[in-house]
């Protein structure tokens, strides 16, 4: 049984309708985004189900997962706090910001809080250079930007994220 199809029939229809009928595989990226919403990463089953919908071999789909950084191959925290430390942000203290943030939360870059809620990651430019330090939060099927941050405001936000118990 294709759980993806069952769970998101409407969304999948909308996605497929965007592309020419004989170019179904174009839908692979949006379907991966959809499949990732709940588990927070791409499960083997999701690969299989997308493969069924688009008539693609799963290795082919997995290869796409591996190419793009916003698809997670492994389970991580429910929220990925992704801090930009690229050049423009770094010129405005992003490296130091990330360091202090990690110290405050008590985990290293790439690690997840013990409650499994938040993973802190370092990412490349997010097009928010004028509002550095900044980061995005990926999780619960959304990506939100948080700009002009201080360590305090970030710690507070992370605390809020960790308090969210039920699904959004």
């Amino acid at each position: 049984m294709n759980q993806l199809l069952q769970k998101y029939p409407q969304e999948i229809q909308t996605i497929l309708a965007k592309y020419p009928a004989d170019r179904k595989r174009s839908a692979v990226m949006p379907l991966l985004h959809l499949a990732q919403q709940e588990p927070g990463y791409i499960t083997k089953q999701a690969l299989q189900e997308i493969g069924e919908i688009l008539e693609m071999p799963i290795t082919d789909i997995d290869s796409i997962v591996g190419f793009y950084t916003l698809y997670h191959e492994q389970p991580g925290g429910r929220y990925h706090v992704q801090v930009c430390t690229d050049l423009p942000c770094a010129l405005r203290g992003a490296d130091e910001f990330l360091k202090q943030l990690c110290e405050n939360i008590g985990i290293k870059v790439g690690e997840t809080t013990p409650d499994g809620m938040v993973t802190i990651e370092e990412v490349k430019c997010l097009a928010g250079c004028h509002h550095a330090p900044m980061f995005q939060v990926q999780g619960d099927g959304d990506i939100s930007y948080h700009e002009d941050q201080t360590v305090e405001s970030a710690v507070e936000l992370i605390a809020k994220l960790r308090d969210r118990k039920e699904a959004a």
Partner: peptide, 20 residues
């Protein structure tokens, strides 16, 4: 026409994988 192996990741981390 049987794409059961493919590249994974990108840049210097490219590697050949199969999920079949």
């Amino acid at each position: 026409d049987d794409p059961v192996i493919d590249f994974f990741h990108r840049g210097r981390s490219l590697e050949i994988i199969t999920d079949s």
